[in-house]
């Protein structure tokens, strides 16, 4: 039986390319032979389906409202286990899920999670209670930042809150939209210095992703950059980050539970 590493993709600030990175990293890991489920957790303003040019008929919202089989809402993106769980857009009730709703949702989803090496959760930007608790539930947290001071401040606020409210102390960082390697280094070092000095924690740098004109073009074509142009500068950066994530999974796979997020589910009857 495969063990699944749950990875939440986070960013304090919106518009830093979080969803796009999640999609392309997922694409890479799948190409590397790992079955992967990409879950749109931006409840309320879902975008992953749009990046993929999909208009799914059902979303996770249906699981809360009806007895629909959870497997029936999974959308295959590529052959061989690259699948997608769509969320709804324009629904305010899911932006702030209460604990019971969240537990019910994940309880319904558990059968779907089987058989993947990775569960990627693309969380909404910001510091809502839903973002904080889903982030805390997952095995690995990847915070997407850009070199801009606004992004640094917002992502630090996110880390600080998750640390204070959920006791989380391990974070991985990707610096997106960097003009050069110096910018990656500087942005990460500033974030790491504050985390170390005020929270006593040391985030890990997964790498930087260069600013790349090919990316917005891929968005307009509604296809992953890795599929459209895997030799572009950003695509190469994403590839090496995916390799690091693969190594991280291999290093901690023995510590993973039978089901991703299982520690958080109470096993209540629904």
């Amino acid at each position: 039986m495969r063990k699944t590493l749950s990875v939440s993709i986070l960013s304090g600030k919106g518009g830093v390319g979080k969803t796009n990175l999640a999609l392309n990293l997922a694409f890479c890991l799948h190409k590397g032979g790992h079955p992967l489920l990409l879950m749109d957790c931006d409840m309320g303003l879902a975008n992953l389906d749009v990046l993929l040019g999909l208009a799914p008929e059902h979303t996770m919202y249906d699981l809360l409202e009806s007895d629909i089989e959870p497997q029936s809402i999974v959308v295959p993106i590529e052959q061989g286990g690259f699948d997608f769980l769509p969320a709804a857009s324009g629904l305010t009730d899911l932006i702030e899920m209460d604990n019971d709703t969240r537990e019910l949702l994940f309880h319904r989803l558990l059968p779907v999670f089987d058989g993947y090496d990775y569960l990627f959760m693309d969380l909404g930007a910001g510091i809502s209670p839903t973002v904080l608790s889903l982030g805390a539930m997952s095995d690995m947290r990847v915070v997407i930042i850009t070199p801009e001071p606004t992004s640094l401040t917002d992502s630090y606020a996110l880390i600080k809150m998750m640390h204070a409210q959920h006791g989380v102390d391990d974070f991985h960082v990707i610096v997106n939209q960097a003009e050069n390697p110096g910018e990656v280094k500087q942005a990460f070092q500033r974030l790491a210095a504050v985390c170390d000095r005020f929270l006593g924690i040391s985030p890990v740098l997964l790498g930087g992703v260069s600013y790349d004109k090919a990316l917005p073009e891929a968005v307009r074509r509604q296809t992953p950059l890795m599929r459209m142009n895997h030799k572009s500068p950003a695509a190469k950066d994403i590839f090496s980050i995916a390799v690091k994530m693969q190594r991280h999974r291999a290093a901690i796979v023995h510590t993973l539970g039978q089901s991703p997020l299982f520690g958080e589910l109470t096993g209540k009857e629904y």
Partner: peptide
Amino acid sequence: STMVQSQEKQILFSGKE
């Protein structure tokens, strides 16, 4: 308790304390 303090912002903006 979870507010980003001005000292913290200082480091984020300049890299110096």
